[in-house]
Design a protein around this nucleic acid. Structure first.
Lengths: 240, 240
DNA sequence: GAGTTAAGGTCAATGGTGTTGGCATAAAGG
DNA sequence: CCTTTATGCCAACACCATTGACCTTAACTC
């Protein structure tokens, strides 16, 4: 069995599980998100998710082809949450900034899920809607489509890349997270100036900055470059 | 057992395994890298790695506290390879560009390993050496240390973030990779202009661009911004 | 309402995983 | 050569995703 998965839209018979719950993609994805939050990235397993839903693990395979497809659905939910309630204002620069920050924030709100999904392409509804919206904002600038696509790619990749990187630190299993953070104080901060002058000289500043994200800076740089391209009517300089 | 792991430097007795191989961190990490290449991210397991080394899986625990510590060692090896043979030229801008590209290339050469390690902090030798080198290049500009650290963080995070994101696509299990890529042709390229005008208008451009990385562009933007800061003697504009 | 169909549950089993405790052996030091 | 013990091996544990076979009952038809 477990070959064909019925698309959510065509589901007709919803039998309650032994635990009494009525399942749907929504309930499963939401429970999965909650479990990721509570038990960490490794804590999301078919068994545990089944138990949390009051259902047998194998039931999940009636809704998703496997854990990988569930992962894609979780990612799509993240994108959906990022843009839920958002409307373009017509100010393309402000809109782009808002979308970038929304994506970044939505992912960081669920770091474990972000790590799992930031690099995937699902082709699901929210993902498509988001891409359509971003392309719409960029095309409203009047830039030629090749330029639009170039900026689109840099914009989206940057948002996802930084979200994934920053989320990864937050999503580490507690032990590993503590270890990694301790490295800064136990190793870097103690390197002698004789052998590592530059680290020794900046150690305090490094430690102080480690918890801040570089994304806002990077985003402004990208937006600045895009604005320059719009002003030129075309060319996309480096801004330097 | 498997509580205390003897540091590589203090190892004295090296008993050959049943397969005749003599183990060391080096041989283990190199074999692990090779296995990641051949069998994919999921293909690196203690059992398989043991077999490849001609040793029992549990033997690995004499060298690393667990698979996580092995992961950190793999990451450090990647950094080591990135900067092996590199010497600063004294031209800080060119040096920074070279280091960024070297890191990016070294990670992409081992995408499966990159995904596993790009977001970790190991405090191991190669990582420390790399940080010391980058800080040295930045401090040679004469910028004040807070500014140096600000740029350092953006530079390193950007390189790692893009490396991780781009590596992730390459490192997907073949099935998932094919699926994700197919989405562009099967889903995005077929959306009707009535419902998704912007995607429909740019679909061809999008598909054509999907395999190019946005990192080179992003790197130049960052370098341009850093150069502006150096010219000003301090301030770090957005470049817009 | 009764009968039929099959969606959508459950159960049990398979072959994988990381990790650990106990034991064996041979390398190094005297 | 003898002792010590680092470093290897073996067997076992608890967990994992996934699947095939089975069963129950919701929903549709008459």
């Amino acid at each position: 069995m477990a070959k064909r998965v019925v698309p959510e839209a065509e589901r007709r018979r919803r039998r309650p599980t032994k635990g009494g719950a009525v399942l749907s993609e929504r309930t499963i994805v939401e429970t999965a998100l909650r479990m990721l939050h509570e038990h960490g990235r490794e804590g999301l397993t078919a068994r545990r998710l089944g138990t949390a839903l009051g259902a047998d693990p194998s039931t999940l395979y009636r809704y998703f082809r496997g854990m990988d497809e569930l992962t894609l659905a979780i990612g799509d939910e993240l994108i959906g949450r990022a843009l839920r309630g958002w409307e373009p204002s017509g100010e393309w620069l402000a809109d782009l900034r808002e979308v970038g920050l929304r994506i970044y924030r939505a992912y960081l709100a669920h770091p474990e899920a972000a790590v799992l999904t930031a690099n995937r392409v699902s082709g699901r509804a929210n993902e498509i809607a988001g891409d359509e919206a971003i392309l719409g904002v960029l095309r409203s600038t009047g830039l030629p489509d090749p330029e639009v696509v170039r900026i689109y790619q840099a914009f989206v990749d940057q948002a996802l890349a930084f979200a994934a990187l920053d989320a990864a630190s937050l999503a580490l299993p507690e032990a590993a997270r503590a270890d990694d953070e301790a490295v800064w104080r136990s190793t870097y901060a103690r390197l002698p100036a004789e052998t590592h002058p530059h680290i020794a000289a900046t150690a305090k500043l490094l430690v102080a900055r480690m918890n801040d994200s570089a994304y806002p800076t990077a985003l402004e740089m990208l937006l600045g470059s895009a604005a320059a391209a719009v002003r030129d009517g075309r060319g996309g300089g480096t801004g330097g």
